[in-house]
Each structure stands twice: as structure tokens, then as C-alpha cells.
Design a protein around this nucleic acid. Structure first.
Lengths: 101, 101
DNA sequence: CGTGTAAGGAATTCTGACACG
DNA sequence: CGTGTAAGGAATTCTGACACG
């Protein structure tokens, strides 16, 4: 599917500490941890300390933009689960049509 | 040139701490720091602490393989500078032919 | 609700050195 | 030469709480 399957997961590998994420996003560590509490981000934990991926960083930047526009964390969360449902539906449909065509 | 110019530098962005690099490569922190001393890797420094890229991680894995084959750090270094010279030459030639064709 | 901050502790990283070989 | 380790300190991260609004 992709030209460089390995490179692809550079984006998703959770290796970045919160300090670096803070620098990259311009968000405070407090904000980043709070967004986790509100279930907007899901870092890995390596013995207590949080590890984020580049995808997480991008996602946090989107969140930062939405927050600036006055969107609440609750609304952002709603939007996320909604998109998730849509993606799952699409997956279902793909599986469905793949089976019978 | 590339489909996703931004994604591309996920590979080169120096954001990974030495502990994670150690886990990723299987090398000890001592080894990783020593290879830096021998000028085989060049992490960024953010206020003292080293930050590596995924490219650095890959490079360290190659180094680990060479070391297992008995190649000395000095020889690895030689090989690196040699490759660098070749790449620079190629750049020169590209510039040269670009100018006159 | 969303974020700042001070507090105390735990985990991480750093350097220079001694050791072995 | 290449790597391990103990040592002491510095920087990072963590949690729970109080504050403001």
C-alpha cells in the first residue's frame, strides 16, 4: 500500500517525552496532561513517564486550534468519537463489499 | 519531490531521549554515548540532555551490526566520511550538469 | 471548565573516573 | 579499544492539591 511501510510508523511510534511535545506544540505540560484526562490524547507509559508519537503531536496541534476557537474539550471529544464511528462504519462497508465482489 | 514533505522529517527530527534509543536499538546508554565520542552519531542537545532522530536510531542499528562483525569504531568512522565525500561529489556533479544542460 | 503554580518525590540523564583487557 | 559500573548532581516528569473564575 505505501512505498515505505517502515517509515510510516515513525509517525505512530510513541517515543517523545512530554517536555518535547510541549516545545513542539506550544502547549503547557499542564494542558497536555489535562487533555489526556479528558481523553483527547493517549500517550504510552514507560514506567510512569508519558511517551507521545508525532501523530499525537499533530493531533494536539489541532486541539490547540480548536481550543483557540472556543471549542470545549467535551465538544472536541464528541467530534472525535463521531469520526471514529464513521471510520468504523467505512471499515465495515469495505469488508462487506470486499467479500461479495 | 515527495508526496508528504512534512511527514518526511519525522525521520530526522531530534526528539528521542537516550533511554528510548537504548530500548529501540538494544545498545546500552554507555555504548551510545561512546559512539558519539567517536563521532559516529550527533544528537542535538536540549539543555544538556541528548535528543536523537529515528534516522539516528537506524544508523545506530547499522553500527551495532558492524560492531558485531568486528568492525572498529574507527573503521566505521572512515567508512562514513568516505560515503560523505562521495555524496558531496555527486552533489557537485549534479550542480555542474544542471548548470549546463 | 481550563489552566497556573508550589510541593515533594520518583525516574532520567549527565559527566568524569576507575576497572578490565 | 570498547564497555561496565558506582557516584553525585542536575534536569525531567509525576501526582494531588489549591487557586481563579
Amino acid at each position: 500500500m505505501t512505498a515505505h511501510p517502515q517509515e510510516d510508523h515513525y509517525k505512530y511510534k510513541k517515543v517523545i517525552s512530554i517536555g518535547v511535545v510541549s516545545e513542539l506544540t506550544g502547549l503547557s505540560q499542564r494542558q497536555i496532561r489535562y487533555y489526556e484526562e479528558r481523553k483527547l490524547v493517549f500517550p504510552d507509559r514507560s514506567k510512569g513517564t508519558r511517551k507521545y508519537s508525532f501523530a499525537d503531536v499533530e493531533h494536539l496541534m489541532k486541539i490547540a486550534n480548536q481550543r483557540e476557537e472556543g471549542v470545549s474539550t467535551w465538544e472536541i471529544r464528541q467530534e472525535m468519537t463521531k469520526e471514529l464511528r464513521e471510520r468504523m462504519l467505512k471499515g465495515q462497508m469495505n469488508a462487506h463489499f470486499r467479500r461479495r465482489s
